[in-house]
Design a protein around this nucleic acid. Structure first.
Length: 436
RNA sequence: GGAGCUAUGGCACAAUCUGGUACUGCAGCGGACUCGAAAUCCGUCGAGCCGUCUUAUGGCGGUGUGCGGGUUCAAAUCCCGCUAGCUCCUCCA
């Protein structure tokens, strides 16, 4: 949520910044008009309440003296009615203002490229492994024998989309045998890396309440994409960002503890409501997928730096796995709702001949903290909102896809990246093995 | 799932039956005493949020006794709903 006072005082800048995020200019005008009306009513009702408090004191005093106060009481009955009406009007205006404010996206930091969509994203660096060991190079044509990850996965008998669809529905799958072991090896590797980098590992609830979903910005605007638990005000998390970031909701964090870094593996559930027909095959777009998430809480003057660190933490995973990728800064039009600045990591998928998002690292500044009321006490002893950051480190299913394509061999086997071998009992290749 | 109990400042508690300035202690802050400290004494102390004036700190008003409603001139107090914690029962990996 944006700061109403900021919007009031910086209307022109805010209007432009929101326009960059695709918000029509009359949205802000409407909000501020409602806010003005709201404040007018507050002034009126508070004056009456001050009068009532004064009269109540007098009545109480009179009663103690055993005097008759019925005239004053009668007079206050009318005031009470007036207060009640105004309070009701205020409640309505409050709702309008809060609801409109809750639907506004974060505004972008000044160094974020301005543009309507992903075309305006800016590549800031690329990384490729030094030793390709005969693997297909980035931006070269893949050899004819190279299969997309879902084909090699099915051929090896380690990914079973058909039975996933049978038992659950489209965009669900079973990992089988070495597939399941590879996935497990990957997220153990990722968590171990983050542990070494100072993140505190957590296992979080994967069903959260509405206020948690509101806190990180999924609600109220994006309810359509969420798996809600029927009959309960609870939702299966679309990302552990929700459960991790809300860990401190409503709390004041001791300043000396900041920055705080936490991480968790969790399944993520998404309806992918707007993605009908896109990426219908494979591990790229599922209703349920595993993801290792990183979250940080930082002082305002630390958060820029922490965003870069977190991006590096995600890159470290890809580098150790030897997967080629590039880092892009998302444009104002392509960023997520809560983000003020986002770096995406996109991994090279040779069979598709393109980069695909495998991690998204964002600084939301105080946008989420304002919704969740997470504060710390600054040097002056004043409460101030913390900054929150989140990033994938990494999306595990997409990492499996990247390994199956980048480490695929001509004989239909897949080489296991060296760093994962200790997690697989030293196994060096994935090959078709009969089971069941 | 069922029953009972509990929820008040940073902490511990009083006021709830009987509606009328939310008590007290500890901690904190300021001061006295002291070479200094402890002890003692005096003073101060509702965090946060909202509005408004002033903007350097601040003043005034509103709100604020777990959360949301209701009754009333007035609610910590009475009524209804909810949440969390504890105890017991039930169930269970």
């Amino acid at each position: 949520m944006l700061d109403l006072k900021y919007l009031r005082k910086n209307q022109e800048v805010a209007r432009q910044k929101l326009a960059d995020r695709g918000v029509q200019s009359d949205v802000l005008a409407d909000l501020l008009a409602a806010d003005q009306k709201r404040r007018d009513v507050i002034a009126k009702v508070e004056e009456l309440k001050a009068k009532r408090n004064e009269a109540s004191d007098k009545i109480a005093f009179a009663k103690r003296q055993k005097e008759d106060a019925s005239a004053a009481i009668q007079e206050m009955q009318a005031v009470a009615k007036e207060i009640k009406d105004l309070d009701q009007e205020l409640e309505g205006l409050d709702k309008v203002v809060k609801d409109q404010a809750a639907h506004l996206p974060n505004i972008a930091e000044d160094d974020v490229p301005v543009g309507p969509d992903e075309e305006a994203n800016v590549e800031i660096r690329t990384w490729e492994p030094e030793d390709y060991q005969g693997r297909p190079l980035v931006k070269t044509e893949a050899p004819a024998w190279l299969k997309p990850h879902y084909e090699i996965g099915e051929d090896l008998g380690i990914l079973d989309f058909e039975r996933g669809a049978k038992v659950s529905g489209a965009r669900f799958l079973y990992y089988v045998g070495d597939g399941a072991r590879l996935e497990r090896a990957l997220y153990n590797f990722m968590l171990d890396q983050h542990h070494e980098e100072g993140y505190t590992e957590m296992i979080t609830p994967i069903v959260v309440n509405d206020s948690a979903m509101f806190g990180t910005g999924q609600y109220p605007k994006f309810q359509d994409d969420a798996y809600r638990v029927e009959g309960l005000n609870q939702t299966y998390i679309p990302t552990a960002e929700v459960s991790l970031t809300n860990y401190y909701s409503g709390e004041t964090i001791p300043a000396e503890d900041l920055p705080i870094s936490i991480t968790a593996l969790s399944p993520s559930f998404r309806k992918e409501a707007g993605a009908a027909g896109r990426d219908t095959r494979g591990l790229i777009r599922l209703h349920q997928f595993n993801k290792v998430e990183m979250v940080k809480f930082a002082k305002p003057d630390q958060s820029d730096q922490e965003l870069e660190k977190m991006t590096n933490n995600a890159e470290n995973i890809l580098q150790k796995l030897g997967l080629p990728y590039h880092v892009i800064t998302l444009s104002t039009g392509d960023m997520g709702f809560s983000a003020a600045k986002t770096h995406d990591l996109e991994v090279w998928l040779p069979a598709q001949g393109m980069y695909r998002e495998i991690s998204s690292v964002s600084n939301t500044r105080d946008f989420q903290a304002r919704r969740m009321h997470i504060t710390y006490r600054n040097e002056d002893g004043k409460l101030e909102l913390v900054h929150t950051l989140n990033g994938s480190g990494l999306a595990v299913g997409r990492t499996v896809a990247a390994i199956l394509e980048n480490y695929q061999n001509e004989d239909g086997t897949v080489t296991v990246p060296e760093v994962l071998r200790p997690y697989l009992g030293g196994q060096e290749t994935l090959q078709a093995t009969p089971h069941h």
